[in-house]
Design a protein around this nucleic acid. Structure first.
Lengths: 110, 110
DNA sequence: AATTTATATGAGCATATGCTCATATAGTAC
DNA sequence: GTACTATATGAGCATATGCTCATATAAATT
């Protein structure tokens, strides 16, 4: 175990923003769809069932946060996961939630 | 590496909520203050410099999300970190942000 | 019971966020 | 050039979120 970080106000704002970017189901949906690799916007629209405008906006949000890379090829734009820590982040949160829900379920399961 | 999870819409909403809880500087401040162990509300008010009302609200939010435990003793209420995955979560995000900022700094540092 | 202390909460305001529709931009094909 | 396709974006609305002030609740003290 490392000693805990000391965090100043600015750092906390940055961290909060990062979490905020991950705090939308559609953005998580997009990240999830990109787990398998680079996809075009159109492909992501099809996969997620969102509107083109909305998907485009969320992709921008993710890209501005440096969680996605953007590559333009002709008419299409391809996005891909830029920050592999996303995978671990999702694993951590999913694991924690699963444990929590299992515990809650246990209250009834006797 | 484990194979990536399959996530349905409900799961994504839960995960998004969890991230949302972490997406406020004051809540991160409170978690950070609790890294060293259980604290009373009053103590947390002093440490964070927030108002009593605001700190109390944020603590509730964190407790409702099962990230904090609540223990009442006489007049005081003590909160503590309930989910140790928080530590790893913060480490991950901090590490990722540091890397990102270092890269951005490098653009100028030549 | 009345007073004091610690915490929680209702109400209201201000700001942020997400969504949609329509339109703009940029690249391709003719 | 014109027409077409893929993506981005401005505007406006609806909802969510956070903050503060005042007040409520709950426990301890006298």
């Amino acid at each position: 175990m490392k000693s805990p970080r000391v965090l100043n106000a600015d750092a906390l704002v940055l961290i909060a923003r990062r979490f905020g970017v991950l705090a939308e189901p559609m953005r998580l949906r997009l990240l999830h769809a990109l787990f398998g690799g680079e996809q075009s916007v159109g492909e992501l629209v099809r996969r997620t069932g969102g509107t083109q405008a909305n998907v485009s906006r969320h992709l921008q949000t993710l890209a501005h946060a440096h969680l996605l890379t953007r590559r333009k090829d002709g008419l299409q734009v391809f996005y891909a996961i830029a920050d592999p820590s996303i995978f671990q982040l999702c694993e951590l949160v999913c694991g924690s939630l699963e444990k929590q829900l299992a515990k809650q379920a246990g209250v009834f399961a006797r």
